[in-house]
Design a protein around this nucleic acid. Sequence first.
DNA 1: CCGATTTTGTTCTCGCGTTCACAAACTCCT
DNA 2: AGGAGTTTGTGAACGCGAGAACAAAATCGG
Lengths: 204, 204
Amino acid sequence: MARLPVYLRALTTLSEAGTTVCSSEELAAAAGVNSAKLRKDLSYLGSYGTRGVGYDVDYLRYQIAREMGATRDWPVVIVGIGNLGHALANYSGFRSRGFRVVALLDADGQRHGEVVAGVVVRPFSDLRAIVREHGVAIGVIATPAAAAQDVADQMVDAGISSILNFAPTVLNVGDHVAVSKVDLSKELQVLAYHEQRKATQETA
Amino acid sequence: MARLPVYLRALTTLSEAGTTVCSSEELAAAAGVNSAKLRKDLSYLGSYGTRGVGYDVDYLRYQIAREMGATRDWPVVIVGIGNLGHALANYSGFRSRGFRVVALLDADGQRHGEVVAGVVVRPFSDLRAIVREHGVAIGVIATPAAAAQDVADQMVDAGISSILNFAPTVLNVGDHVAVSKVDLSKELQVLAYHEQRKATQETA
DNA sequence: CCGATTTTGTTCTCGCGTTCACAAACTCCT
DNA sequence: AGGAGTTTGTGAACGCGAGAACAAAATCGG
C-alpha cells in the first residue's frame, strides 16, 4: 500500500514524542486518514494491535518497516545531476530511510569528477557496471524530459527494476518494471487550477 | 482534474512536433491514459472536438490552459532555501508554466541577502508584506518537517490560499486552504516495497 | 446526394476503495 | 469475579471513477 510510508512516519513521530501505545484513532489523526481505513490497512499485515488497548508504537513500527523493506539497505543510482539531481543527492530523507546513493551519473562530461554529497559524478556509460557491482534495483531519473526515455531504456537493460522519474514524460517500459513519477510543476498547476476556479466562481 | 496538466504537456509536445490535429486515441497514448477517460475529461470543459476528425491541437491546448489558469501569471513564494529550495527556485519548469518566484524566504539569518536564481533571500518575517505587494496566492514549503506547520499557519494568516508542501508532515489548515503534498522519499519507499514483495514472493 | 467510415460525446455497467457499523476481545474498576 | 467501558478487526453498504459500448455528427468517395 502507498500509505504505509505515511503510517511509518507518523509512528516515528509518536515514538520520538515518547508515546509507547496509541489507538487507531490517534495514529489516523497523525497520518491524516480515516481510522477505519488505517485499521483495515494494518489488518492486511496481520493482527498487531490489542483490542481495548491499541497498538504498541515501536512494535508496529518495526512490523511496517519490515513489510516495506525499510529494514534493509537499498542502493540507489541517480542519473542527471542538474539542480534537481543535486538536491536529491543531498536530501537527507533518503539516507535516513534506508536508501544509499551509490552513484551519480551524468551524460555531460564536464560534470564528471565533481563531488556531490560525498559521491563522485561518473559517466552515464558506467551504469551497467555499477548496477552489477552494487546490486542496484532502484534508479532515479532527474534528467531533462528529452533524455528520460533513453535513460530509462538503458536502466532496464542494465537490470534495474524500479524507476523513480522526475522528468515530465511518460516512460514506456516493460510490465516487469515499476515506474513512479513525480512532477514538480504538475502539483503547482493543480493548485493554480483550484485558484482559477475559485476566482471564476466568485465573479459568476 | 489532476490530469489536465498531463494533457497540456502532451499537446505541447504534439504541437512542437508539427501536429495540427489529433484523435483522442493519439493524445491518450501520448498522455498515457485510456482514450475514453480522456474524452470524458475533455467533455467536462466543453465540446472542443469535431466528430470524425479529432481535436485541433493548438485550439484545445489554449482551452485547457485557460481552464487551468495557465494563461495568466502566478506569483509564488518559496519558504526554506535549503537544497530543495535551491533546486525549486532554479527549476525552469515553473517559469515556463506561468509561475513566477517573487520571493525566497528563510528563517536562517545567515542566508539573507544571498541571491538564488536571480532572487534575493529575505527574512521569513517579510512574508506578509510580500504577499500583499504581489498578490501571492500560492506558497511553497521546503523547510524541515519541524518548521512546516508554523510556516503554513503564517502563510494562511498572510492570505495565501494554496500551499505546496514538500515537508514530510501532515499540515492542519482551514478548509478554505488547498494543500498539495509532495514527499520525495515516500515514492522511493513505495518502490522499495514492491521490490521487497517481489523478493519475498520469489523465495516462497 | 447518399451511404460508408471515422471519431467524438455520452450512457451504462462493473469493480475497487472508502466508510459505516457492529461483534469479538481486552482492561479496569468495584 | 463480573460488568462497564474501550478498542480492534471485519462484514456490509455506499460512492466514485474507469472502461466498454453505442449513438450522434462530421468527412469522404462515388
